[in-house]
């Protein structure tokens, strides 16, 4: 792709998210979401492979539908209450419709089925943008509307954690596994949204760091299936030994960063008098943990037979940039001791 056009499209991505962040009017927020969708479409289809074009079409249809639903809900709100402000949603009907539209936009569980298919058709860089940056603008709206219908939020969240764990169990494709992991994490964020929005932000941030490292590890190994992870010990030995820590951090095991949001969310749910919900959410996290463990097993804990010529590519320097990966890996593994600081920063 021409670098000027690439710069224009990346500027469009940034501008769309910024407009949605800065807006207090629903029409402007909708415009930001539309700019975001329009700008990422050529990036998704840039290789003109049939799979990429198909993924782009599916993404376009779902996002356009979700954006139209969002605008329809806010118009209904204006007809019922005469109010266009995002933070002043008072009528329950438009609030529920906006919650559902945003759930379709970020891929929460009953509306999730586009997410694995779309991510499967993309290359890893665009998939990274799709599963991190594109979630920011809808989440900003999600945090601002103060959804007060607790049943629908809890249903969406619990179904997302369950489906995110369950759907990934039988997958051998890394991008689909990452998509299901994204669904599960978004479910955790939705569970705690009505009780402590600051915890949602903290979870979003840690999820971004962890999934950034996971995508970059797979990109450095040029791996898209579990099979091709098996020879990663010959490509990048040190990273191979670190990768299980990243994956288990995504799964949420204690000494790693990923434990922090899950811990705080479970504590918050228990404090709100919902111990049964907290138990169910923790149990569904076990399902996700299983496929992270399987990835670690295929990547690190077994050493597959290889021929002599194939076992020394680690001697060559990779042309890919590794500094972002180093920073994000360190953050994704080591920041659990910073929990008090993070809580002081996010929970006022």
């Amino acid at each position: 792709m021409n670098p000027y056009i690439m710069a224009l499209l990346l500027f469009g991505l940034g501008l769309g998210t910024t407009i949605t962040f800065a807006s207090s009017h629903w029409l402007l927020a909708w415009m930001g979401l539309e700019i975001n969708t329009l700008a990422i479409i050529p990036l998704m289809a840039q290789h003109h492979h049939p799979r990429a074009v198909e993924a782009t079409t599916k993404y376009f249809l779902t996002q356009a539908t979700a954006a139209a639903m969002l605008l329809f809900a806010s118009t209904t709100n204006a007809w019922l209450t005469g109010e266009w402000d995002i933070q002043q949603m008072s009528h329950p009907l438009p609030t529920t419709m906006i919650t559902l539209a945003l759930a379709l936009k970020i891929g929460l569980a009953p509306m999730h089925s586009w997410m694995p298919e779309v991510l499967q058709g993309l290359d890893l860089t665009t998939g990274l943008i799709l599963s991190t940056w594109q979630k920011l603008a809808p989440f900003a709206l999600f945090l601002q509307i103060h959804p007060n219908n607790s049943t629908i939020l809890i249903t969406l969240g619990l179904a997302s954690t369950l489906v995110g764990g369950w759907g990934g169990l039988n997958q051998t494709q890394l991008r689909k596994i990452l998509a299901y992991s994204s669904i599960a994490h978004l479910g955790w964020m939705t569970l705690v949204l009505q009780f402590a929005p600051s915890l949602t932000l903290l979870t979003l941030l840690t999820y971004f760091v962890m999934t950034f490292s996971a995508f970059l590890v797979f990109k450095l190994n040029k791996a898209t299936t579990v099979n091709s992870l098996a020879i990663s010990w010959a490509k990048t030995p040190i990273l191979t030994s670190l990768a299980p820590l990243i994956l288990l951090s995504l799964g949420g095991l204690p000494p790693l960063t990923g434990f922090l949001p899950k811990w705080l969310i479970l504590q918050e749910l228990t404090k709100q008098g919902l111990p049964l919900l907290a138990t169910f959410a923790a149990l569904t996290a076990l399902l996700s943990l299983y496929f992270y463990l399987r990835l670690s097993y295929a990547m690190t804990l077994t050493m597959f037979p290889n021929n002599l010529a194939g076992s020394a590519p680690w001697r060559f320097h990779s042309p890919q940039l590794t500094l972002p990966l180093a920073v994000s890996t360190a953050t994704a593994i080591l920041t659990l001791p910073l929990a008090p600081a993070a809580m002081a920063l996010f929970a006022p």
């Binding site: 056009i5 224009l8 499209l9 539309e34 700008a39 479409i41 050529p42």
Partner: peptide, 13 residues
């Protein structure tokens, strides 16, 4: 600006 962006989107697609 969005109309201009759409022109490039269509051309790139």
């Amino acid at each position: 600006w969005v109309l201009l962006l759409t022109l490039f989107v269509v051309l790139e697609l």
